[in-house]
Design a protein around this nucleic acid. Structure first.
Lengths: 138, 138
DNA sequence: ATAATCGTAACTCCGAACGTTACATCGGCA
DNA sequence: TGCCGATGTAACGTTCGGAGTTACGATTAT
């Protein structure tokens, strides 16, 4: 499902914020240094995480980012669906008016099993929280 | 996980072969017409499916492809892992020697939950067979 | 006021997938 | 036996999305 490393980067950033605790916001440059990437990349990712209410940004001098919830209440599934495409499978362009019944109906037929696989995936990721991840790091 | 439409295309092609039954091999041009793509793309994909023993190719005149097993014994999981990257998650390049403990240890910490999610995904896809798909098409 | 920080646009770079052409090879069939 | 339709695969161009980078306006603590 993953077409990018955004999920891993997001989990990394969230873990850094979790370990920072309540010591005020952490700026994008700090997070970027740990992730080994560019501050703008972090800010863009944080924008998506903020839209999902997982983090909060503080503007202005000595601003930055902090978690918007208890780390124990943020699951890997929350992070995944905040930064990755909601549809796990990339469908091939179908032609419902195709003379071939397979081409015309495959999309409909696959809907249920693919949705089920996506749900199973989601449920499994939901079992681990950012707190679990942050706590497992020495 | 999915970075391409190869999985859907592969399921499409396998369904076409399943519905063709034992009427001899089906050539790549026929399959490509249904999938609405190029014969070479189909042959490349069939190469991967053949390596996974899911299909059989017949060379020479009047050659083509046919299923190598009972469609009921080929699951969507079989097809998925035959044509997609085995590792569902794309890891960000980690630096085990990083001074930041998160950067140094995240890969290790995430191994178990990510593997679990991949397994859940696999198990769910394994519940549907190519026969199920082919039979659901009028 | 100053300086640090976010938010975001604009651009380049890179890699993967796809489509296409070309051609060597194989093997049933007339 | 020779031909023709098929696979297998290399090579190439195009397209697309993600990542990285620079730049700059807006915001706010000091």
């Amino acid at each position: 499902m993953l077409s990018s490393s955004r999920f891993i980067v997001a989990v990394h950033a969230m873990s850094v914020l979790a370990r920072n605790g309540n010591c005020g916001p952490l700026c994008s440059a700090r997070v970027a240094a740990s992730v080994h990437t560019n501050p703008v990349v972090i800010r863009r990712l944080m924008g998506e995480l903020e839209r999902a209410r997982l983090v909060k940004s503080v503007a202005g001098r000595s601003g930055g980012f902090q978690l918007n919830r208890d780390p124990a209440d943020i699951s890997l599934a929350d992070v995944y669906f905040a930064v990755e495409d909601e549809n796990v499978f990339r469908m091939h362009k179908t032609d419902p008016s195709s003379p071939c019944p397979v081409a015309a109906q495959l999309g409909r037929v696959l809907t249920v099993p693919l949705k089920a696989a996506e749900c199973a995936f989601h449920s499994s990721l939901a079992k681990t929280s950012i707190r679990d991840v942050a706590m497992a790091i020495v």
